[in-house]
Design a protein around this nucleic acid. Sequence first.
DNA 1: CAGTGTAAAACGAACGTTCGTTCCTTGACT
DNA 2: AGTCAAGGAACGAACGTTCGTTTTACACTG
Lengths: 201, 201
Amino acid sequence: MPRVSDEHLAARRRQILDAARRCFLRNGFHATSMQDVISEAGLSVGAVYRYFGSKHELVTSIAESVLDGADELFATLAAAEPPLPLVEALDRALQFVESQTGPDGVFPLAIQVWAESLRDPALAEFITRLYGRFRSRFVELARRAQQAGELPADADAEAVGAVLFGLIPGFALQRVLAAGPDPKTYLDGIRALLAGHGVAE
Amino acid sequence: MPRVSDEHLAARRRQILDAARRCFLRNGFHATSMQDVISEAGLSVGAVYRYFGSKHELVTSIAESVLDGADELFATLAAAEPPLPLVEALDRALQFVESQTGPDGVFPLAIQVWAESLRDPALAEFITRLYGRFRSRFVELARRAQQAGELPADADAEAVGAVLFGLIPGFALQRVLAAGPDPKTYLDGIRALLAGHGVAE
DNA sequence: CAGTGTAAAACGAACGTTCGTTCCTTGACT
DNA sequence: AGTCAAGGAACGAACGTTCGTTTTACACTG
């Protein structure tokens, strides 16, 4: 089928990426062979190698698409007008993450990306930059909560933002690895902490 | 050396496990070949296979030893007499984790164990049980903080414990993947949250 | 104490498989 | 007729593991 449309090419790419995502979710990056991806996509070796030059390129593409989605939500939460109360912003973030922790969600893939980034400097740099951006969203959230009087005026927004961001993977990990509590319960815990009796300082 | 002492056998095992740990830290479980481990240990193929029946057994042994250490600390923190103030307990937990986030620490290995557990039901069950125990330590911490008046009397200790525990991997992940703040800054953020202005109920 | 038998520890060549990738061929569409 | 997406046989390398051989330390004899 020569001279096919651009949409056809894009669709083929997506077809391969979707197949790869399913395989990677099922077996992990390393235990998935190119043949697995190729069979899952219902294509031939040659066809797949026309669209992706190597397995590594497939892994990288998946990694980027997996993580890009979350930033959009976090950006929305941080920029909401009027500013969202802390608890509500966290509620929304937790619900999003919760929706991605199942076997079909992307969070298990994210864990694999973390592991992969420990050995792949290029991927590590991508991750560092993206997660830095994630954190900056939560710093912004903290700053605005501070202005709204939800946090002490002298608090370090950078520090609070880091903690708020840390709550998210902390929740997701427990959900996936340790049969953790549901988002509602987790949020109750956060609320209780926020309502703390001023023991610090 | 036939008929060697039990200490010799144990030392050989440790020799192999240490070599494997170094290799796994350097290249990850999957990208490390048995030959890598064997060369690193300075032994022969046959010698290593005398002590460990398969590569998988090596991975499992490493995983267990990596995670067992942390529980000891968490148990100590939860059982301290008199009860530790929340902030101080978290401080100690963060400092411990911090000491394990470097290239020589075990935290990078823990990330790989997480990824591995997604495909290995036996490992997953081990992880679930262990992390459940981790969380229960923090629940105990929360309960005692509650009795000391550091948390609202009507708070759900289970929920708060889960959040407190979640702070730990949340910190470590940022430290390893996203050039996150140091433990002191992170703790400042936690303090600011605890001092929150009672916005939640 | 010397000599010898033996069981166990260590060795490493070799095996069958599977890997990611290459590259030539095929055939549908312009 | 020409172009190019798609196909798939074939390749060399590397994998985890097996297994027959060699080496070693100790027990037992005289």
